[in-house]
Design a binder for these strands. Structure first.
Length: 284
DNA sequence: GAGCCTGTTCGGGC
DNA sequence: GGCCCGAACAGGCT
């Protein structure tokens, strides 16, 4: 299973680094030339040395680690970012671009493609000004209705991937939501009912957390057992009743009707759908 | 060796 | 401005 840095893996990654909550940063090693630091002023990171990680949260695909005196380290995993919580004597490996050491742990950010991003904020909580997360109470039916009403002609899959509308939803989750809606990915947003869209976005987001973040908790700690070896840390994935398990296999079958899934490029992304089950709405 | 790619941004066309 | 697409980013994997 390759990595899939969408909402649930991001939350799992947050929990992995959160192992070090309550510890203070003793040293920082960073590859400042790495693209992931393109939005971070040079020499900003040392400000974290001596500061204690007090809490953390995630919003969509972004993680925030808060250090005392209102410093917030933001990490986006991009396409290939991984975080590890390793023992104190961890030795740097290829593509490790950020290493935070505390007395008990080594927090590592490894990203070979460097589409990820690291930022540092001081002051107010940066996530509070972002659009509502599908996991939050602010994300309700009225909010989904306003999304649909403002962009009735937008393609469903393109809308689902838009991080300003559905923060955290990525390619596989978008396909899963379309499949559960019984909707082809290229129908217009305006043909959907707010109730149904709200229901399935919620179901897939909550289910992803349950099946991916919660079920892989044993990958987090203790650090000597944490999955910082090659292969990533996601061992448990959504059940075979989800499209997830079938969408990448050539000749994969729909878990509901068992007909062969179709694949193509929609909204510029590789997309899988069931030609039989996803016909509840007129094509765009 | 060629092609693919689970994320995001930017530029161009309409 | 809105929307859509393709390219670019970079390197491991099939």
């Amino acid at each position: 299973m390759s990595t899939m840095p969408e909402l649930a893996e991001v939350e799992l990654a947050r929990r992995i680094w959160a192992t070090a909550e309550g510890e203070s940063i003793s040293s920082i090693t960073s590859n400042k030339d790495a693209r992931i630091f393109r939005d971070l002023p040079a020499a900003a990171l040392p400000a974290l040395v001596g500061k204690t990680m007090t809490s953390s949260t995630h919003h969509g695909k972004r993680m925030y680690f808060t250090f005392d005196h209102d410093w917030h380290l933001e990490v986006h995993l991009g396409m290939s970012g991984k975080v590890y919580c390793a023992p104190p004597d961890y030795e740097e490996r290829k593509h490790d671009h950020l290493i935070l050491r505390t007395p008990s742990y080594t927090l590592v950010l490894n990203d070979y493609r460097m589409f990820g991003r690291v930022m540092l904020h001081e002051g107010d909580s940066p996530w509070e000004s972002l659009p509502p997360s599908p996991l939050s109470r602010r994300f309700n039916q009225a909010h989904v209705r306003s999304i649909i009403e403002r962009r009735p002609k937008k393609i469903l899959k393109g809308a689902l991937l838009d991080q300003s509308l559905f923060p955290g939803v990525g390619n596989w989750m978008a396909d899963e939501i379309c499949w559960r809606l019984g909707a082809l990915p290229d129908i217009a947003l305006g043909s959907l009912s707010p109730e149904r869209l709200y229901e399935e976005v919620k179901f897939v987001c909550k289910g992803a957390i349950k099946h991916v973040a919660d079920k892989n908790q044993d990958r987090i700690a203790p650090p000597e057992e944490a999955g910082f070896a090659a292969g990533g840390y996601v061992a448990q994935v959504p059940p075979t009743t989800w499209l997830f398990q079938h969408r990448w296999k050539k000749g994969g079958l729909c878990p509901t009707c068992h007909c062969e899934l179709e694949r193509g490029t929609i909204a510029t992304r590789t997309t899988a759908w069931c030609p039989q089950c996803q016909t509840a709405y007129p094509k765009k």
